[in-house]
Design a protein around this nucleic acid. Structure first.
Lengths: 130, 130
DNA sequence: ATGCGTGCAAACGATTTGCAGCCGG
DNA sequence: CCGGCTGCAAATCGTTTGCACGCAT
């Protein structure tokens, strides 16, 4: 059994920041947010905490077009997809229509197993356009 | 107007390697393939060439789960998706069903523009499983 | 000739990790 | 008190870039 994570000041700070922010943010951006809030936390700790949260499925992770990891505390815990603004990270949770079953069907048809799929939408939101 | 690329030994070597290989490969893997073939090419040149080929849409690029870029010379030039083996990069080109229109519809519905989408399937092929 | 293309090594930027000290349970 | 957490700095690692030289055109 994994011991539950310790409630440290830093972990709380990161969790709080994620709870407030509604958009996908990089570890570095979160680190900056924390710093400006006064809840300064070491960058390495931010990375470690986000990794832990992601593993515990408490936050969603995805990679932007530059390959950076972005994190976000999503409303629904079930599997879903996102429409993310390239500029500010603003996010809209969306339902992948039939994607799920389609994915495993196609995969199986070609002899592949453990099928996983990536379905994300990127765009520019109204604010970032003006 | 952009001048057409010069036909150098290195560019030819990279293009040939891509033509032979059917699977998605990283720049470093290609560099190694070239080396073992005897067509040694500088790693930086491999990166630069792949970048150029990608820009010219002669090869497809996608990021694996580690954020590395993988390249492949796809059969069809039109937009399509892939089912890629996590182990060996073996690839099957697939049609995204209604994804395209679905993407822009959803995007527009939320006030987003310049919608782009990522739809890729990852799995383990029969060979990599045995 | 001309300047794009190359190789090499240094520079980069995001992320990870080693290690000594701290503090939550 | 004890071992997981932290912070910091050093180490990774894929990828990019500066620069002097070579070669395709």
């Amino acid at each position: 059994m994994n011991a539950p994570p310790r409630m440290t000041r830093q972990r709380t700070a990161v969790a709080d920041a994620l709870a407030d922010l509604a958009d996908f943010r990089s570890a570095q951006q979160l680190h900056e947010v924390l710093r400006s809030r006064g809840d300064s936390v070491g960058l390495a700790t931010v990375y470690r905490t986000l990794q832990a949260l992601a593993e515990a499925r408490e936050v969603d992770v995805l990679r932007n077009e530059d390959g950076e990891s972005l994190y976000r505390r999503c409303a629904r815990r079930e599997h879903h997809h996102h429409l993310v603004c390239r500029g500010c990270g603003r996010t809209v949770e969306i339902d992948g229509p039939t994607v799920e079953s389609w994915a495993s069907t196609v995969g199986a048809a070609h002899g592949f197993e453990d099928i996983d799929h990536t379905v994300e939408l990127w765009g520019t939101c109204a604010d970032c356009r003006s």
